[in-house]
Design a protein around this nucleic acid. Structure first.
Lengths: 331, 331
DNA sequence: CTTGGCAGTCGATGTTACCGAGTGCTAACG
DNA sequence: CGTTAGCACTCGGTAACATCGACTGCCAAG
């Protein structure tokens, strides 16, 4: 699609622009290693690259800036993902060997780690509760007319939901329902789960209610952590863009479905408008699935300006998702 | 401290500045109702108010802007909290009569409500788990060497923590420990709680471990929700300030201890530097405790630029905390 | 095909002039 | 004696204008 020289020039433009955030001119590129030609030649090539949509000039007599298409070519053909550098590898290793405690906390801290390593916003999406095997189900009385259903999942996460109960429901019925639910749900996943009738109306009613409410609520609910937004905001200078991006990122579900969508499409990078969320069109997203035993149990990603350091982001996201998968696997 | 006319002028300056965000000049004030004097007189008075530290001029030949001290006088003596307007009252009422489900979700939505009503960032701090009576304690096996301790509290919140167990621990011991813990912890609070020995070494060991880990982790952990940060950010125009504020607000614990500190000091408004968090010195915080049966179980607050609408914020925070308290009380 | 050279473009930066909102001061006024 | 009209003065903000420099596109020579 592009001959070697054009590719080298595009690569140099992308890297220079990522580093400086300034439109880059032909003479800078001519000086770059790997491009052994004069600035005039570079100018000619850049004119072609512009015509083909890889570069744009913000205005006549300014340097060139990569377009989304330019970044796309760069990540597909030029910026080999490579290994994360030694420091990153070490930091990630240390982090996960020290990680402990609740799943939610670990995911939360993972997002902080990603932010710190990439200076971008980070997203960590955990396993959908509804798809993890259940270890225990209890119905606990809160007051005469309210109780809470508590599900414990095999990965250590816990979900609960409050239900209303008639005030004639006895403690014995609650206990019976808890036992019955735990017995029949153990090692099942929530989706499509059901329990047989016991014959006792009160108990069966409780079980039905508990299942209904958990199914309804846990349905598209996956634990997600978005962090480092302010860190990333520093990369933008247009105030209006910052506001738009911030506002969008505050709506967690937008980010979560954005990440899921990209992972589902089998992509690892979505650049600018590619992800289809209009207010984030100045942003790119780099994601990686978290895999345990061949199962896709979550995703990690970073979100930053389109002029982000893709090779580094890809490498970092990869190593973090890999290590997170291992960590989740051996617990 | 200030005669009536000075107070009226200060009040007018504060209100005008809150409305326009522009330095306000003597002629605007002279035109304001309640100040029946000429601009020259207003100028003389404003010069005095400036000397006494209630106003400043950004530069010679500009209008005046209130200082923190000016705002303080305003909220203490001039801006009577008043009632929330009818629309707000209605919205809050509707919100809480529709509210249902888990405590965490309700608190989260409450922070969204506050943001929407005040156009500022909102903070909602829930009850410290460690101080709510326990309804149930269970130890559930996750794998051969890991289990999770799940505490259910009377207000419907749930907390859990993962523990390591020796792989010789039997299911029976887990069940025994669960029963023992629930029996002895029911209606107790976590702080300083203990359970008697059973005589069975394995069970006692589990109970001790569970109590230790929950006490250690739940200690200064209170559920908090910070929302509407991007909405508030629109009130600032200095980019640098926005970044600083955003970065600070991302560290939840800073906000939580800030709010707690203000509530503990018995204050309801902290203006600018009063709250002592230097990066937020361009911000004021308006808080109200949430009280159930005379017990202080949480706090709500809004955080915005020092030139925020204090009367409205106070009224809104008051009505929301009141309604939230009622809602928490009757469940 | 490449390259040095050159005219031309246009944003960024700096200068100057001007306008107007706002002040402090003073003198007149009731 | 407090209040007010009037006035000279200040100074930030805006517009008009010149300058600078980093680029480009193009052309002619290598």
């Amino acid at each position: 699609m592009l001959d070697d020289r054009k590719a080298a020039i595009l690569s140099a433009v992308v890297q220079e622009y990522i580093a400086t955030a300034q439109p880059v001119g032909s003479s800078h590129i001519a000086r770059a290693p790997g491009v052994g030609v004069s600035s005039a030649t570079v100018r000619n090539e850049m004119a072609v690259l512009e015509q083909e949509g890889f570069l744009v000039q913000p205005h006549t007599s300014a340097g060139r800036v990569p377009t989304d298409k330019g970044y796309r070519f760069f990540v597909d053909h030029l910026g080999r993902p490579g290994q994360a550098d030694a420091l990153t590898t070490r930091q990630v290793g240390e982090f996960f060997s020290a990680a402990h405690g609740r799943l939610e906390e670990m995911l939360h801290h993972t997002s902080d780690l990603l932010t710190q390593l990439t200076r971008n916003a980070a997203v960590v999406v955990g396993p959908k509760a509804a798809e993890v095997p259940i270890r225990s189900a209890q119905i606990i009385r809160l007051s005469s007319t309210a109780a809470t259903v508590v599900l414990v999942f095999a990965n250590g996460s816990v979900d609960n939901e409050v239900i209303e109960i008639g005030d004639e429901v006895s403690d014995a019925a609650l206990a019976a329902a808890s036992v019955h639910l735990t017995t029949h749900l153990a090692d099942q996943v929530l989706v499509g789960a059901g329990v047989p009738d016991t014959g006792d109306a009160s108990t069966d009613e409780l079980c039905r209610l508990a299942l209904d409410v958990m199914a309804g609520h846990g349905n598209d609910d996956e634990p997600a952590y978005v962090g480092g937004v302010s860190t990333m905001a520093e990369a933008f200078d247009a105030v209006e863009v910052v506001r738009q991006v911030l506002h969008t990122l505050e709506q967690q579900f937008v980010v979560v479905s954005l990440v899921r969508d990209i992972v589902d499409r089998g992509m690892s990078v979505a650049i600018g408008v590619e992800h289809g969320v209009e207010p984030l069109s100045a942003c790119s997203v780099v994601v990686a699935p978290v895999v345990v035993d061949g199962e896709h149990v979550g995703s990690v990603g970073v979100l930053g300006p389109t002029r982000m350091n893709y090779p580094q982001a890809l490498a970092t996201v990869d190593i973090v998702s890999d290590q997170l998968g291992r960590r989740l696997g051996d617990s």
